[in-house]
Design a protein around this nucleic acid. Structure first.
Lengths: 118, 118
DNA sequence: GTTGTTACATACAAAAAAGTATGTAACGGG
DNA sequence: CCCGTTACATACTTTTTTGTATGTAACAAC
């Protein structure tokens, strides 16, 4: 497989390209949060544990740029903005489900300690 | 989902744990290279494009530590070492296939430019 | 006895990703 | 008129990941 370029970066394989679309700490949690339909910015921030404004904002922009989701602004008094999966974004869900299934299996079989909440 | 700890690191979700096992630039190419059976160190280095000794070595050690593969040493004159998937490693293959399928789809539909070899 | 092969191993530097802190604009409520 | 909410936006720092360069030990071939 020959190397290729996407958005100014070099990739060595289709897998690497995949990871540019759904990899990193926050893209998959964001995509999963949108699987049932459009969700507001503030809701995303509240339902995704630990995420900060900076990461939510920058990952949403990146996912939008890559065609994984669309941003819809409603001109209301307190502004309302909703994010929604595109067809491509929906296609990524089955891949993410596969990763999640594997991760749940690991949690059952590996030495994983539940962390106390505080 | 509560946070949990594995090998001294905190994870927020099963997906993050999955990525610890197969994520990064080199783990998936290595695992795929082993799908048909045991492969020697030198063969891995020659069939995985762009990988360096340092990355191959450190990723093999990490995958071994995580129980994804086993290392078998044959005491021969020029030493021979073979790496082989465990049951867990084999289980990861279907997840990686899913990512690869998604990546191939992206290559067909996104603005991807093939890079000239040199 | 110099070079080559096999399979690592490590020091150090660069690059990429993520986190912290702070700010903004347009309102609305009290 | 000060505070809170919504949805960003940016500067800066820290952490993590990856890459570069170099070295080693045991032979074997020439």
């Amino acid at each position: 497989m020959a190397d290729f370029v996407y958005q100014g970066r070099v990739y060595y394989s289709p897998i690497e390209l995949s990871m540019a679309f759904i990899g990193g700490t926050w893209k998959m949690p964001i995509l999963l949060a949108l699987r049932k339909g459009p969700v507001r910015y503030s809701v995303l921030r509240s339902i995704i544990p630990h995420i900060t404004d900076k990461m939510l904002y920058s990952q949403l922009r990146d996912l939008e740029k890559k065609g994984m989701l669309t941003r819809q602004v409603y001109s209301e008094k307190p502004p309302r903005v909703e994010y929604k999966l595109t067809t491509l974004g929906k296609r990524s869900i089955k891949v993410i489900d596969s990763l999640q299934t594997f991760g749940k299996h690991l949690m059952k079989t590996e030495k994983v300690a539940i962390k106390r909440q505080r």
